[in-house]
Simulated assay, not measured.
Amino acid sequence: MIDDYNHAAAAVSGGGVIAYPTEAVWGLGCDPWNQQAVERILEIKRRPVEKGLILVAASKQQVAPLLESLSDQQHQLLVETWPGPVTWLIPDTNKWVPDWVRGQHSSVAVRVSAHPVVQQLCQSWGKPLVSTSANRAGEPAHTTHLAVSTELGEEVDMVVAGKTGEQTSPSRICDLVTGKVLRS
């Protein structure tokens, strides 16, 4: 299994796009700082760049530049929900995340995942990954390896083995500044 994660990390490092299981659905991932890789994901999904994408990480340390300007209360909210299926919109005051990931937003959507495959992928890669559902925009997200391989297998560089977690719906999305829940 370690070879799979190392192979996936090498694919990402080379500008590739991978499909992998997350808490509830299959995701597509790549190097957030590689514009061509992100553009490939947007093309696969048929999604406009303006909407922005989620970053997924193995730990808070992998997204530390985003956390530097947060209040103690905001840090506490992250501690209470991470790792786990909560995605937070975090202000990117230093523009650490590229525009092609943030989209038209001043914040970036970030989740520290507890899913073992996501954890290992981010640890092997050593950085956060783009994480967006493995489906075309407006279509249901794929929940099985077979569905992802059949529908998107020709368009990605690797489909990582594994199963989705116990969640029945994609991660909850909350705004860290306002506390507003954008997706429950």
Rank of each mutant, 00 (worst) to 15 (best):
A37M: 02
V156F: 02
C122F: 08
G126I: 06
E151G: 06
L146W: 08
V25D: 10
N135R: 08
R136H: 13
W33N: 07
V181F: 01
T93E: 05
A9E: 06
T178L: 09
E50Q: 11
A134Y: 13
D31P: 08
L55T: 05
I41Y: 03
Q74E: 10
E139S: 08
K95H: 10
R47P: 04
V130N: 05
H105L: 12
E50V: 09
I2K: 10
C122Q: 04
A64Q: 13
A134R: 03
E139W: 07
W100K: 04
D72P: 07
V156G: 01
H115C: 11
V12W: 08
G153I: 12
S149M: 08
I2V: 14
K51D: 07
A8T: 07
Q120Y: 07
A57M: 12
C174H: 04
V56S: 00
A11H: 00
N6L: 15
R40C: 12
Y5P: 00
G52F: 04
T164G: 06
H145I: 08
T164E: 00
R172C: 13
A161K: 05
T143R: 11
N94I: 02
A141H: 12
V117C: 06
G29H: 08
T178S: 15
A147F: 02
V181S: 06
I41V: 13
A10P: 05
G153Y: 12
T143H: 14
L121K: 06
D175H: 15
P65Y: 02
G27D: 00
E139Y: 14
R47W: 08
A161D: 11
T164S: 11
P98H: 10
L28N: 04
D4S: 10
H105N: 05
I173R: 03
W96D: 03
H75Q: 10
L176F: 12
W26R: 03
E80C: 07
R47C: 05
V56W: 03
M158G: 10
H105S: 09
D157M: 09
M1E: 12
Q123Y: 06
V49K: 11
S131G: 12
E39R: 15
R46K: 15
P140S: 07
Q61P: 01
A57V: 06
Y20L: 11
D92L: 00
E155P: 09
V86D: 03
L67H: 13
A64V: 11
G162V: 03
G84A: 12
L77K: 12
V177Q: 01
N34I: 04
W82E: 02
G165H: 03
Q36N: 02
A64K: 10
R172I: 14
T93P: 04
A141G: 14
L70A: 01
G14D: 15
E166I: 14
R40F: 01
Q123R: 05
